[in-house]
Nucleic acid binder design. Structure first.
Lengths: 158, 158
DNA sequence: GGGGCGCTACTCGGATACTGTATGTCCGAGTCGCAGCGG
DNA sequence: CCGCTGCGACTCGGACATACAGTATCCGAGTAGCGCCCC
């Protein structure tokens, strides 16, 4: 079970976007994070589709957070980029083979699927408890208060 | 983030194995669950490598649970089949670009990686709380006590 | 009749093709800002 | 001097190649059981 690395890029981009009020083009975000611009654009489009960021075309266009940083959870970003399909897809193999379970016993999910779904819920809850604002604060603390200030300055310049 | 469907097969196989004391060949497990035998064998090998089941060659060989069903957790099965790499691999992009974080601030993990790791820990804990015996009991309850009895009977026959 | 030996059949295990998803890239459609022109 | 219009440049958005991992399969190495032969 591997998570697309686009998730990491998207989270960093959201944190950066939370530091400026102007729209930031995809190319500029790519430069800031040192990642391929064309590919990052793809993930930003996914964020836009997911309602995490809003895009504006034109000469001074770019991406902006759709809501306040404290109102956007990490889970939303992950879901927007990675898709909202469940990680475990039950193929109902209990209905296969010589001992196939009768259909009337399959009204509930398979016990295995329930366990996996519970685990996924725990994972999602953990991600939903953290907001972009929390991330920005944590990163700022790690850098003793310089990282976010530098990002703000860099976004302002040019 | 998608989980290999081999995980589902492996869990079902472990539950079935918990019902019989004889070694069960891969082909027989495949027949029981209605899945391709050659492919299932691959996953059973992974379970053997992970120490979840033990394999015995020869005419009456096959697979057996390596420990008591209550002592094997779902997490072990998932890890054995899917690999134990973390779902989120931090590429340290904070060290990229014009505002690269200095190395002395990177002694700890990136804040984003920490959040993802916490979520994964929650997921793993949830899976580690359930054993194969728990699964077998839950499946039995769903079928009003017939499913595991049928499996035992089918494994005895032939 | 008992013990030893060889054969056979069955098992797992890893090496080998194929498919789908993630990765990476590109060019076209659309929009906003700015400069130039006319009133 | 002010407003309108046309142009240009920049933006996003989706369509297009490529690389890798999951899917599916096969055949060879090894072992245990069984029957046969010899004593």
């Amino acid at each position: 079970m591997k998570l697309s690395n686009g998730v990491e890029w998207a989270l960093h981009c959201c944190v950066s976007l939370s530091q400026g009020h102007e729209a930031v083009p995809a190319a500029r975000l790519a430069e800031l994070h040192g990642v391929p611009a064309a590919y990052l654009a793809k993930h930003l489009q996914a964020l836009a589709r997911g309602g995490v960021v809003t895009s504006s075309p034109g000469q001074v266009g770019g991406y902006t957070l759709a809501r306040a940083p404290g109102e956007i959870t990490v889970l939303e970003v992950v879901t927007a980029v990675d898709g909202d399909e469940p990680t475990f897809r039950c193929r109902e193999i209990r209905q296969n083979g010589p001992l196939a379970a009768p259909l009337e016993q399959c009204s509930r999910w398979c016990a295995i699927a329930r366990v996996m779904a519970d685990a996924e819920t725990a994972w999602r809850s953990s991600l939903a408890a953290i907001s972009i604002a929390d991330l920005a604060e944590a990163i700022d603390d790690d850098s003793h208060g310089t990282a976010m200030r530098d990002v703000r300055g860099w976004l302002m310049s040019r």
